[in-house]
């Protein structure tokens, strides 16, 4: 039977707001499949977002959904999670929302290792506002605020998360959608802060400025440029040029999770 996305989508909300060819819908479907695969009760899930194209996603989903202010989704989510530690708190956030204005909350959520899953919808651009460059836009690429080619530098989001203390860090892409289901499931099942940097395609404000003739070309670029981590490690420097590792890139299982540490303290104080 074809997967019934209708089970999770709020009636009458489709067609969604994202542009023709925007890959967010592909990743959105992967997220729904991942939630379904875990058999979670929608009552127990909070889906939090900030501001931007990706941040409109919660409105479509029949969970407890919270569309907050630009960059602050993780901080709102931290409040939700600390108040109800046994619930699932999931954050969707664009590359600008998560690592530019939201950068401080990003690194601290990683450091704190609170049991929240952050899905970064990384399309290398601020799409909602018309195509300005973001902290993940690669050098040389074009954007409305880098009309002569980006002379700024980009975060390696997984490395940033790893360095800040996140205990599950992965990268997926909209093209490798089936593999993404598993990454999201593993991230959500992980006890601790989990980040999945999900490479996405914005044909409208990024693709057109960067010589991608069609949305499909952007997906095919992902197919070529992203290599499973183990294989990537074996590439020679020039083979690796223009390519990036994907899959689970960093995982630590020993670090205490913040809610467990906090409520462990609460228990200790009772005795």
């Amino acid at each position: 039977m074809a997967f019934d996305y209708g089970k999770y989508i709020r009636p009458g909300k489709l067609p969604h707001i994202w542009c023709p060819g925007c890959s967010y819908g592909i990743v959105f479907k992967s997220l729904l499949r991942a939630v379904d695969a875990q058999g979670l009760d929608p009552d127990d899930i909070a889906l939090v977002s900030g501001i931007g194209c990706a941040s409109r996603l919660p409105g479509y989903v029949d969970f407890n959904t919270l569309h907050t202010t630009h960059g602050r989704a993780l901080a709102f989510a931290t409040g939700l999670k600390m108040a109800k530690p046994d619930k699932h708190v999931l954050v969707v956030s664009g590359d600008g929302d998560a690592t530019a204005i939201g950068g401080n909350h990003f690194i601290h959520a990683c450091r704190r290792n609170i049991d929240i899953t952050l899905l970064v919808f990384n399309n290398f651009i601020y799409g909602m506002t018309g195509g300005q460059y973001s902290p993940s836009t690669q050098p040389g690429r074009f954007a409305s605020t880098m009309p002569y080619g980006n002379v700024d530098f980009a975060f390696d989001i997984p490395a940033l998360a790893t360095g800040a203390g996140a205990t599950f860090v992965a990268r997926g892409t909209a093209y490798h959608a089936a593999a993404l289901d598993k990454l999201i499931v593993d991230a959500m099942r992980h006890r601790g802060f989990s980040v999945v940097d999900i490479v996405n395609a914005c044909p409208t404000t990024y693709g057109r400025r960067n010589k991608f003739k069609s949305p499909t070309d952007m997906l095919l670029w992902m197919k070529d440029a992203f290599v499973p981590a183990a294989a990537y490690a074996k590439l020679s420097p020039d083979e690796a040029a223009g390519k990036f590792p994907m899959g689970v890139l960093h995982r630590v299982d020993g670090k205490p999770e913040f809610c467990e540490a906090y409520y462990g303290m609460v228990e200790r104080l009772k005795s």
């Binding site: 039977m1 819908g25 592909i26 093209y175």
Partner: peptide
């Protein structure tokens, strides 16, 4: 096609 459609527009049923 179903996997890649961003808009829930196409579904394939065996």
């Amino acid at each position: 096609c179903e996997m890649r459609c961003p808009d829930f527009a196409i579904s394939v049923e065996r």
